[in-house]
Structure formats: C-alpha cells, structure tokens
C-alpha cells in the first residue's frame, strides 16, 4: 500500500460521498471553531490578568533620609530576588504627581507647595511572584532601616490571583468537555460515513483486502477532512479576531489578538483538527471493518 494510493483514494472518498464528508467536516469545523475561540479568549483573559498583576506596584515610603542613604536603600531592595524593578520618586516628583492627579485648584496647590509627600521607591515584583511571596517581600522591606511604611494593594492582587485560578480551571474544564463532545460527534459522524460505504468495504473484503488496507484510505480521508475543516475554522478565527472584531469593538482587549504568538495557537489547533480526523476515522473504521461481514 503506497502513499500515492492512499492519497488518491482519500481524496476520491471525499468526492464519492460528498454529503457524508461535508457532515464530518462540519462537525470538525464546529469543534475547532469552539475550541479556538475558547482558547483565544481564555488566553487573552490570562494575559490581561497577568498584565494587571504586573501593574500592581509596591510603594516604599522613606523616612527623611539624605540622598546617599536613599540610594543605599534602593540598591538593597534591588538585590531582593523577587524584585524586578525599583524606581525612585523624590519629594518634588511626588508633589508634581499629586498636582497632576488632583488638579490645580488653590487648595491642592497650597498642599503641594508644602512639599509634604515623602520620597518613595516604587517596587515592581517579578511577574511570576505569587501574592504570598509579594506579601513576604513587603514584610522584609518594612523591617529595613529608613523605611517609614510600605503600601500595596493586597486585596486586588489576591482577587486577581483567585480569579485567574478559577478562570483557568473553568476554561480547562470547558475545553475538555468541548473536546470530548467534539470527539464523540466526530467519531459518530465518521462512523456513519463509513457505514455509508459498507458496500465498498464488503467488496474489498470479498477480494481479499486486509483490514489495514481497507482502513488506510478512510484514515487518510479523515485526516484530510480534519485538515480542511481545521483550515476553514482557523481562517474564520483569524479573520474574525484580526479583521472583523477590531472594527466592531473599539477595545478588543479580551477578544483581539494582541497577546501571545497567534501562530502557536493556529498550529496547535490545526494539529488538533487533523488528529481528531485521524483518531475518529481510525477508531470508527477499525471497529466497523473488523465487525463487518461479507
């Protein structure tokens, strides 16, 4: 059994029973489309959560120190393993920020003139740091001499982390059930397709074809169906997320493509689609051909 024969018969199978092939491909198309949209939105949600987490800064307010002591303290904090970046904010800069954020009314101007805000260090923890680790870093920094107070939004971080975990679990379960449903659907559709060709199978058995030989073209046909359905679904997903959605929705944070490398997802989904076509047709053909009598 050569590859040429398998491909010729695989394509011929699509041509000979177009309705059955279309039904199988539609099942595969829907499955890939659903999983693709879920994966894309899920990944974007994860990226947004990670981005928000990275925006949470720890503010270390300093006591009234000379510049050299401030620099020493900055360097000490920079050396902490969980610290990504430290930025110094002088009293003057803090006043300027205060003016920007609260406007230039007479009252705020008077307060800013007092230069009452302390100098601070804005500390950005490393991206992979958990809330508990950030909390312990805060504890360490609080004990450093020259530190007046340390503030950070623990509640927001905790909520983000909790929601991310819940989202990952819910998304994972949803993808699992969609995948399972799709596999059952694809398996049964391909089984019906093969059942529609029982005359061909009987004729092949009659003339002494091995089960493997009979199965080959069906499996290739299943993989071709997977490739065609996957290609169409992915084309629609890319066109939808890159072309249509950004025009319909101005802010496409959770729906658009800005995050991650899209071709990984496209590659993975295409492989998944071909695999579903292969697995569905292999199992269905194996069972049916083995049990079919002349």
């Amino acid at each position: 059994m050569n590859l040429g024969y398998l491909l010729r018969e695989g394509f011929a199978g699509l041509r000979r029973t177009p309705l059955a092939a279309l039904t199988s491909m539609f099942s595969l198309f829907l499955a890939v489309l659903l999983i693709g949209v879920l994966a894309r939105v899920g990944y974007n949600l994860y990226e947004v959560a990670e981005y928000l987490k990275s925006r949470v800064e720890v503010e270390v307010f300093l006591e009234d120190l000379d510049r050299q002591s401030e620099r020493d303290l900055e360097q000490k904090i920079e050396k902490e393993a969980l610290v990504e970046l430290v930025r110094y904010v002088s009293r003057e800069e803090a006043s300027r920020i205060f003016r920007q954020e609260f406007g230039m009314s007479g009252e705020t101007e008077a307060l800013a003139e007092l230069n009452f805000l302390p100098a601070s260090l804005k500390v950005e923890p490393v991206r992979q740091a958990t809330v508990a680790q950030v909390d312990s870093l805060v504890g360490v920094m609080k004990e450093l001499p020259g530190v007046a107070d340390v503030r950070f939004n623990l509640a927001l971080l905790e909520t983000l982390e909790r929601r991310s975990e819940q989202l990952a679990l819910a998304g994972g379960l949803l993808v699992f059930f969609v995948l399972l449903t799709a596999m059952i659907l694809v398996f049964n559709t391909i089984r019906l397709t093969i059942y529609a060709k029982r005359d061909l199978i009987r004729a092949m058995k009659l003339v002494g074809a091995t089960n493997r030989f009979i199965r080959g073209p069906f499996v290739v046909e299943g993989m071709l169906q997977g490739a065609i359905a996957g290609g169409l679904a992915l084309g629609l997903i890319v066109a939808g997320f890159e072309g249509v959605l950004p025009k319909l929705i101005t802010r496409t944070d959770l729906l658009g493509w800005p995050y991650g490398e899209w071709y990984y997802l496209v590659g993975a989904l295409f492989f998944l689609s071909v695999w579903m076509g292969w697995a569905g047709s292999f199992w269905a053909a194996r069972r049916f051909i083995r049990n079919e009598r002349i």
């Binding site: 005359d199 061909l200 004729a203 058995k205 003339v207 002494g208 074809a209």
Partner: peptide
Amino acid sequence: RKVPLLRRRLGIIFQDFQLLP
C-alpha cells in the same frame, strides 16, 4: 489476519453482484 490470503485464492460471486456503483 490470514483470512484475506484465503480469499485471494477464491473467486466469489453473489446473486446481488456487489459491484462498486
């Protein structure tokens, strides 16, 4: 697994032809 080998040694004809349409 050897049944196909047997069937290659036989010619089988049915009433309902069983041709591929």
